[in-house]
C-alpha cells in the first residue's frame, strides 16, 4: 500500500511536471534501456514489498484493535502463551523464500546492466567531475566540452549506445540523469563506467548526487540527445577552433591578457587553461556556471563581473575588471558559437 501510494503519487506528480516543462527527472519515466530495466525491476519489488506491507500491517492493526482491553473487563490476566515452534518456523521459512526470489531477480539485473557488452558502434567518451562543473571529453572525436552533454539517440534500427568513463579531478561527485541511467560516482584516482542508450531525442536534466562542497546544489547537468544528423552537425561544429572575427578582437585580446586564460581553454588561441570549463564553443551552450543561470549577455556580464552573485562559493574568482573589459570579454565569448 505504502509503495503503491508512493508510486501513484510519483506518477501523478510526474505527469504534472511533464506537461509543464522538460525538467522531468522522475525515475518512473525511463527513456533508456538501463533506466527502463530498473523501472521494471522496481515495479516487481514494489509489488512484493507492498504485499508484505498489506499482510503484516493488517496483522498489526487487527491485533492492536481486536485485543484491546474492553471497558467491562474483569481485570483477570489473559492466558499466558510462551511460544510455538511450528508457528515460528513458518514465519521464518516464508521470508527466506521471499528473499531468495528478490535476490535472484536483483542479481540478474545487476549483471545485465553492469556487465553489458560494449557494441562496436558505441560512442565512447568520458566525464570528469570538478567542483562544481562537469567536463566531457570525446577522445576519438577530439572534442572537449563542459556541462551540456551531447549524445546520439539509439534506436533498434541504429543502436548507438554511449559508454562513459567517469573520474574526478578533485572530490567525489555522482552522475545522475534519472531518466537515462542509474547514478555512478566520479571518484578521484579511479575510473568507473556507465552506459545509456536514449530512445527519444530531447533534453534530459540531472545533477550531481554526491555532496561535493559549497555549490553541490548548483552542479546541474543537461544531456541533449540528438538525432544522428544533429549529432553529426554538433560534432563538426565542436571540432572547429574558436570563432575569430575582427569585431571581437578586442575582447579576445582582453581574454588572453587577463587571468582568464590560466583556467580556461579556447582552441585556436593562447588560452590553454585546464582548471575551468573549455570555452571554445561557449556561445552554443544554453546555460552558464553548470546550469546556475541561462546563458544571456546580461547574466554573462554579471558572472564575469562577480561570479559569487550567481553561484556563491564557485571557484571562479572575481577579476575586478572595468565595465568596459567585462563588456568586451562578454562580446567575444558571445561569438564563440
Amino acid at each position: 500500500m505504502l509503495s503503491a501510494a508512493v508510486a501513484l503519487a510519483a506518477a501523478g506528480a510526474q505527469r504534472a511536471v511533464a506537461l509543464t516543462s522538460n525538467t522531468n527527472t522522475s525515475i518512473f519515466s525511463p527513456e533508456s534501456t538501463p533506466s527502463r530495466s530498473i523501472y521494471e525491476l522496481s515495479l516487481f519489488v514494489l509489488a512484493v514489498t507492498g504485499g508484505i506491507f498489506v499482510v503484516v500491517g493488517g496483522l498489526i492493526v487487527y491485533a492492536a484493535v481486536r485485543f484491546r482491553e474492553r471497558p467491562d473487563d474483569d481485570g483477570s490476566e489473559p492466558p499466558q502463551i510462551f511460544g510455538s515452534n511450528q508457528i515460528e518456523l513458518s514465519w521464518t521459512i516464508i521470508p527466506v523464500l521471499i528473499v531468495v526470489v528478490l535476490f535472484l531477480a536483483t542479481a540478474r539485473m545487476i549483471f545485465a546492466i553492469q556487465d553489458a557488452p560494449k557494441p562496436a558502434a558505441a560512442l565512447e567518451m568520458s566525464a570528469i567531475g570538478h567542483q562544481f562543473w562537469w567536463e566531457f571529453r570525446y577522445p576519438a572525436l577530439h572534442i572537449t566540452t563542459a556541462n551540456e552533454l551531447h549524445i546520439p539517440v539509439s534506436t533498434d534500427a541504429d543502436p548507438r549506445p554511449t559508454f562513459m568513463k567517469l573520474t574526478s579531478a578533485d572530490v567525489i561527485h555522482s552522475f545522475w540523469v534519472p531518466r537515462l541511467a542509474g547514478k555512478v560516482d566520479l571518484v578521484p584516482n579511479r575510473i568507473n563506467e556507465l552506459w545509456m542508450d536514449p530512445h527519444t531525442p530531447g533534453l534530459y536534466v540531472g545533477q550531481c548526487a554526491q555532496f561535493c562542497g559549497v555549490e553541490h546544489a548548483k552542479m546541474l547537468l543537461r544531456v541533449y540527445v540528438d538525432t544522428p544528423e544533429q549529432f553529426a552537425a554538433w560534432v563538426k561544429q565542436e571540432q572547429q577552433p574558436g570563432a575569430q572575427s575582427p569585431a571581437s578582437a578586442a575582447g579576445r585580446r582582453e581574454f588572453e591578457s587577463q587571468a582568464c586564460m590560466n583556467c580556461h581553454a579556447i582552441a585556436g588561441t593562447a588560452a590553454h587553461g585546464q582548471f575551468g570549463p573549455d570555452l571554445t564553443h561557449f556561445a552554443s551552450r544554453k546555460t552558464l556556471a553548470s546550469g546556475a543561470a541561462d546563458n544571456t549577455t546580461e547574466n554573462l556580464e554579471r558572472w564575469i563581473e562577480d561570479p559569487d552573485s550567481i553561484k556563491p562559493g564557485s571557484l571562479m574568482p572575481s577579476m575586478h575588471l572595468t565595465p568596459d573589459q567585462v563588456r568586451e570579454i562578454t562580446a567575444y565569448l558571445n561569438t564563440l558559437q
Binding site: 536483483t106 555512478v184 548526487a209
Partner: peptide
C-alpha cells in the same frame, strides 16, 4: 520494507543519495 527496496542494487542506483 523501504530498506529492502534500497537493497535492490539496480533500484538503489536510482534511489541512492
Amino acid at each position: 520494507l523501504t530498506g529492502i527496496i534500497l537493497s535492490v542494487a539496480p533500484f538503489n542506483w536510482q534511489l541512492h543519495n
